[in-house]
Every structure is written in structure tokens, then in C-alpha cells.
Simulated assay, not measured.
Amino acid sequence: MARVGSERVRRRPTRAGVVLDPNMIIDAALRLIEAPGGNALTVRRLGVELGADPSAIYRYFRDLDALLLAIADRLIGDSLAGFEAGPDWLVSLRELGERVHRSMLKHPRLVQLRSTRFTAGPNELRADDIGIGLLLSAGFAGSDAVRHFRDFIDTALALATMDAAELTPSQQQTEDRALAAAYASLPAEEYPHLAAVRGDLPQVTASAFPGVLDKLIDALSRAAPGAG
């Protein structure tokens, strides 16, 4: 991702007297991405934020895309902070999924990037190593461990992407009112099954993540070699 290792970059002070490093650039880029009013990240604005010539960024990252992948890898690392796999592989796998989901919701403007791209960075590799290791410890063969972890993590990422969709308060209120009105006026003769569960229909708008996570954990528990 980085153009060259940070220790080999000629670390020159910026015009503001600050010596850049990759982490400093990532911090500044995150501030711009999460700025009020929308993502403001451009190389020019990043240079202003750092008090450096924009071209200085290219001494650390080959282009803006490489910087974005480095940011994504940093966020994966943040989500793993303090995590240690315990003796119960199902409990640890659940925690891993929950950490991924929370991290995605914390940075909603980066969910599309994180759910569709591989960073190939050290933190993503560590997360994959942990997850696949948990499944191997449960007795799954290598190919099955890889396949199950892919399904598990992609589901967590996809649901987090849906949950992180940014609606304005006005949009959310309009949507809630429209759904409430639609549910209240359902004619039983036309929609008999929906009318029968009318009082439970508001659950449709709740996050599916907790329930799907339960189902995934249960399915893996049953599929593990030696299970019941």
C-alpha cells in the first residue's frame, strides 16, 4: 500500500515545520473524510490539512487509492485492539463479528470501501488469520475453514453496510411515518398474512445483524466436526 517503507522515506519537514509520517497522513485523511457536510478528502485539501505540499503525500503512498486502503487497514486494526481469542471458538468468533460491525458503523463513509476491497495490509491479514484459526481450532478442514470464514465476514460486512446508510433526520422521520401509515391501513383481505402480524411489522426496520449473527453461529456450531 505505501509506496515505500516509512523508515526509508526521506522525512523532510513541511513548510509548517512538521515532519510527516504515514500515520499522521492517515489521521489527517480520516478527519477530512469524516468532516461535517461530507467527505472532503482530496490530495490538495490533505496538503492544506498537513501544512505540506500535496506532492509530499506521494512519498508515502503511491496514490489516493493506496491511502484509502491504508486507512481501511488502520480501522481493521482499531477494531481488533484488545481482542484475544479465548478457549470457546464460538464466543470468540461472535466477538470478532460484533467488532467488525461496530467498527463499520463508527465510520459510515468508509463502509463501501471496506466491504468491497481487500487491503492486503497487516491488520486485515491478522483478522483473517484469527478468524480462520478459530475455525481450524473447531476441527474444520482448511478449505472449509476458509469458506466458512468468507461467508461469515462477508455477511457481517454486508449487513453493516446496510446499517450504516446515512439518512438525514428528516428522511428517517418521513420513512417512519410512511411505514406506520402503510402498516396501519393494510386491508386484511388483500394482505392477510401481513395483517395478522401487523403489530410486529415495525421490526422490519430494525438491524438484521443480531439475528443473522445468531443464525450463523448456530449453523457453524452444528456443522463443526464432532458436533452432536
Rank of each mutant, 00 (worst) to 15 (best):
Gly5Asn: 15
Ser6Arg: 09
Glu7Cys: 04
Arg11Cys: 07
Arg12Lys: 04
Arg15Met: 01
Val18Lys: 07
Leu20Lys: 04
Asn23Arg: 08
Ile25Pro: 00
Ile25His: 02
Glu34Val: 09
Ala35Asn: 07
Asn39His: 09
Ala40Arg: 04
Leu46Tyr: 02
Glu49Val: 07
Arg62Glu: 03
Ile71Ala: 03
Ala72Asn: 01
Ile76His: 06
Gly77Tyr: 08
Leu80Trp: 06
Glu84Asp: 10
Pro87Ala: 13
Ser92Glu: 04
Glu95Pro: 02
Gly97Val: 05
Glu98Gly: 06
Lys106Val: 04
Leu110Asn: 00
Leu113Pro: 00
Arg114Val: 07
Thr116Gly: 00
Arg117Leu: 06
Phe118Met: 12
Asn123Met: 14
Ala127Arg: 15
Asp129Leu: 08
Ile132Lys: 13
Leu134Met: 01
Ser137Leu: 06
Gly139Cys: 14
Asp144His: 14
Ile153Gln: 11
Ile153His: 11
Asp154Met: 11
Ala156Asp: 10
Thr168Pro: 09
Pro169Arg: 10
Ser170Tyr: 13
Gln173Leu: 13
Thr174His: 15
Thr174Ala: 15
Arg177His: 09
Ala182Met: 14
Ala182Asn: 12
Leu186Glu: 12
Ala188Trp: 11
Glu189Cys: 05
Tyr191Thr: 13
His193Pro: 00
Gly199Pro: 09
Ala208His: 09
Phe209Asp: 05
Ile217Arg: 11
Pro225Ala: 10
Gly226Leu: 07
Ala227Asp: 11
Ala227Leu: 10
Gly228Lys: 14
Gly228Asn: 12
